[in-house]
């Protein structure tokens, strides 16, 4: 079976499980909106591109961690990960399948909390909606790459919740710093999209996709 089909099969399985239970997405969307309410109560409507991106990142980071934990918990419940590891497929594909499922969930989360944030905080994305989508989209790929790897690590170790956040947040800070700076330039100062900033995010994605893909097999061995 081709690699692409294996990845689609595994990601489809995760999304089907999510569609049956609808636990994760409901949880993270409501959590994201709650975070925005709390921040809006303190910060009010006056906001800049710098703030907008940072506020949205808080919702993406917390929601994302819950997605990563949930999609990996499915594999742990009845030892299903052992079944996947026994399949005669490249184990890196198991990682990629999980990553695709996580990205789909993150995308759905962003699709809800971003418009809500725009309304709550009066963000103005009209200056460069394309740049915003590109920067956030690329960043979420990198975040999911790191999150998926360490969700496998922490799930295999039966660690308590919260630890995953503590591990992936510091690692993802370059994404947060870069995207807030780049979007502040675009939104607040009306500059053109800083391609070197976008490059940093792209390099992050490439490095962590490659590294995670190659070490995944080592960390999941049950």
């Amino acid at each position: 079976m081709s690699a692409v089909r294996v990845v689609m099969l595994l990601a489809g399985k995760d999304l089907r499980i999510e569609a049956r239970g609808r636990q994760t997405l409901g949880l993270v969307v409501v959590l994201g909106i709650l975070i925005e309410v709390v921040l809006a109560l303190g910060l009010g409507q006056a906001s800049s591109g710098l703030r907008a991106t940072a506020i949205l990142w808080v919702t993406y980071l917390f929601g994302g961690v819950l997605c990563f934990e949930k999609t990996m918990a499915v594999e742990r419940q009845h030892g299903a990960m052992a079944g996947l590891l026994l399949a005669p497929v490249d184990r890196g594909l198991i990682y990629l399948g999980k990553l695709c499922a996580n990205l789909a969930l993150l995308g759905a989360l962003a699709a809800v909390v971003t418009p809500v944030g725009i309304v709550f905080f009066g963000f103005d994305l009209s200056a460069a909606p394309g740049a915003f989508a590109a920067v956030i989209g690329l960043s979420l790929v990198g975040y999911a790459a790191v999150g998926t790897l360490f969700s496998a690590v922490t799930s295999a170790s039966r660690l308590q919740g919260g630890l995953l956040a503590m591990v992936v947040f510091p690692l993802s800070l370059p994404l947060v710093i870069t995207s807030t700076q780049v979007l502040a330039g675009v939104m607040d100062r009306g500059e053109a999209l800083d391609m070197s900033g976008l490059g940093v995010i792209a390099v992050f994605d490439v490095i962590f996709l490659t590294a995670s893909w190659s070490v995944f097999e080592l960390v999941v061995e049950p």
């Binding site: 800070l173 370059p174 994404l175 590294a211 080592l218 960390v219």
Partner: peptide
């Protein structure tokens, strides 16, 4: 694994 990933992160933190 974390030690490897964290070290790879260092130049990215610097660039960002």
């Amino acid at each position: 694994v974390y030690g490897i990933v964290a070290f790879l992160d260092v130049p990215l933190v610097y660039l960002s």
